[in-house]
Write a protein that binds this DNA or RNA. Structure first.
Lengths: 180, 180
DNA sequence: CCTATAATAGACCGGTCGGTCTATTTGACA
DNA sequence: TGTCAAATAGACCGACCGGTCTATTATAGG
């Protein structure tokens, strides 16, 4: 049983990812999580902004988990990339093509606050660093690893956007052949 | 002198790109354009949604213009890509890092309407097709050209996002060395 | 069991949202 | 110049926004 606090952040996260920070009202979040307004402001005293940051943190960590799960069992770097993309494509389909990058709509769409931007920047760096670590583990030089990690990250961000526009997860599945 | 109709779409476009469809109110758009509400609904009877579609169309056409301007004077495909990225980085700086992809925030952030998604999909295809045309002009095979166009497009979408998160246009300038 | 705090519950608030409507001004053409 | 549609102007509307506040219910520690 997940706590009310976590449940709120997870449900809010899905909604923010679909319609952006400003596109989702508190009433919709509360209804989705089955939680009254009093509880929201008990767990997140700063309200919607706190909730969005918490939601992004949870989603970002989940992506790290998916990266590890993809590369830990891979035979080569390329295998890891392929598994990673397939997992993300499946995730995309599960959410009916309404969700792209799990954090950009939540944070970039939010108040043009320095905290939001820096949080997003940090999350992106964590993802790229983790990808680079796996690349190094497969024998790449630090420079090669950074280069490939950024390449994969940037293309993936684009793929999430194009996949949403087209409503087609294959955009994500075709990514390995484009970047490797 | 641009018409009131066009002026409205342009100003609305800038705002939508910065804060997303739901993040901008009509009052802010009207103030920015110096136009009363009556005029908005005279020129765009369906209001905000009409305005967003018109804004995206204008921005999308401007991108095509930049693509042509970059590649028409280029000596090689690679040169064209470099000029293109530098022009976009400059555009990014002019708008103080608040604007990334000129259409995604407007259309993906909007109502999860089929028209919005299809419009975005069409715009993206137009961009990639145009890039591919220039690649062919520089001697690439149709298959190569499509491959490179998609690669550039996807990475660019990612670069716009990362550049906004970091507040750093160099992300965009470094793109040619990453995709060529 | 009693008590104090955490957590839930939701009524309520001022402000802003997108949109409608009527009135006035402008400008092209007869 | 007279006419009429195009365009401008903004008051006004109900709905919903994020946030505050008080009251009630669970729950953990003594």
């Amino acid at each position: 049983m997940t706590s009310t606090r976590t449940e709120l952040a997870i449900k809010a996260g899905y909604l923010f990812q679909q319609r952006g920070y400003h596109g989702v009202g508190l009433s919709e979040i509360l209804e989705s999580a089955g939680v009254p307004k009093g509880s929201l402001y008990h767990h997140y005293p700063n309200g919607k902004a706190d909730l969005a940051l918490a939601a992004a943190e949870i989603a970002a960590t989940e992506v790290l988990r998916i990266i590890d799960a993809s590369f830990d069992e891979a035979a080569t770097y390329r295998d890891g990339v392929t598994t990673y993309c397939y997992k993300l494509a499946k995730y995309f389909d599960i959410h009916e093509g309404k969700i792209g990058c799990p954090v950009s709509a939540t944070l970039l769409g939010g108040p043009d606050n320095a905290v939001f931007r820096e949080t997003l920047s940090t999350i992106y760096s964590r993802w790229m660093d983790r990808l680079a670590e796996h690349a190094v583990r497969f024998g790449q030089s630090a420079a090669q690893a950074d280069h490939n990690a950024r390449r994969l990250f940037l293309s993936l961000e684009g793929s999430w956007t194009l996949a949403r526009a087209r409503g087609d997860s294959n955009v994500i599945r075709e990514l390995p052949s484009l970047v490797c």
